[in-house]
Simulated scan of single mutants.
Amino acid sequence: MAKTLVEIKQGLEGNIGRRLRIKANDGRKKIVERCGVLAEMYPSVFIVELDQDENAFERVSYSYADILTETVELSFTEKLEAVSGEQ
């Protein structure tokens, strides 16, 4: 992905509201995968609203440095944000 924090922020700015899959290192060789929507961006962190049917909590935040150090990997999906209650 990008090589600097500025490039990472710029890459994420155009994707607010899009669905994504997060693959995060949770320590001790444990990898956690979550799905959600990129909701908000702040100077040091970004917020992801998680799918409620799969997760016990609503939101998670990660720093841009997590992406830079490859602690967190993001992959955006082609589908737009799903409307809840559609099923």
Rank of each mutant, 00 (worst) to 15 (best):
R19W: 06
K9G: 02
K3W: 07
R21D: 06
R18I: 14
P43A: 01
Q87H: 11
I67A: 00
P43M: 03
E40H: 13
L74S: 05
G11W: 00
Y64C: 05
Y42P: 05
Q87I: 13
E33Q: 08
E54I: 13
L50R: 01
L38W: 03
E78M: 08
D26T: 15
S63P: 09
F46L: 00
R28G: 11
A24Y: 10
A24N: 06
K30H: 15
R18D: 14
G85M: 04
P43H: 01
R19C: 08
F46D: 01
F57C: 11
K79Q: 14
Y62T: 05
R34D: 12
N15A: 04
Q87K: 12
N25R: 06
E54C: 09
D53P: 09
D51E: 12
T77K: 13
A39Q: 14
I8Y: 00
Y42E: 10
C35Y: 14
V72E: 04
E33H: 09
L12E: 03
S61N: 12
A82W: 15
L20A: 02
K23V: 12
D53A: 09
E78R: 10
Q10F: 05
M1V: 11
M1Q: 06
F76Y: 05
M1E: 09
K29W: 15
R59A: 03
V32S: 13
C35H: 15
T69H: 07
T4Y: 00
I47E: 10
Q52H: 09
I67N: 02
V48W: 04
I8S: 00
R19E: 10
R19K: 08
E73W: 07
R28V: 12
L12S: 02
V45L: 13
K23S: 11
L20F: 02
V6M: 07
T71W: 02
E40P: 11
Q87N: 13
R21A: 10
G85I: 05
K29V: 15
E33P: 06
A39Y: 14
T4Q: 00
L20K: 02
S84D: 13
Q10K: 07
Y64Q: 00
S75M: 08
E33S: 08
V48L: 06
L20G: 01
E70I: 04
E73Q: 10
S44T: 14
T77A: 12
L68Q: 04
S75V: 07
L12T: 05
A82R: 15
T4K: 01
K29R: 15
D53I: 13
E70L: 04
V60M: 04
K30R: 15
N25D: 13
F46P: 02
Q10H: 06
T69K: 06
R19V: 11
Q10G: 07
F46W: 03
T71Q: 07
Y64N: 01
E7G: 04
L80D: 12
K23Y: 09
E33W: 10
G27P: 03
S75A: 09
I67C: 01
I8D: 00
S84I: 14
N55Y: 09
V45K: 13
E86R: 12
D51Y: 07
S63C: 07
G27C: 01
E86W: 07
F76H: 06
V37L: 01
V6K: 13
Q10C: 05
L50M: 02
V83C: 11
K3A: 08
E40I: 10
E13H: 09
E40T: 13
A39D: 15
V60P: 05
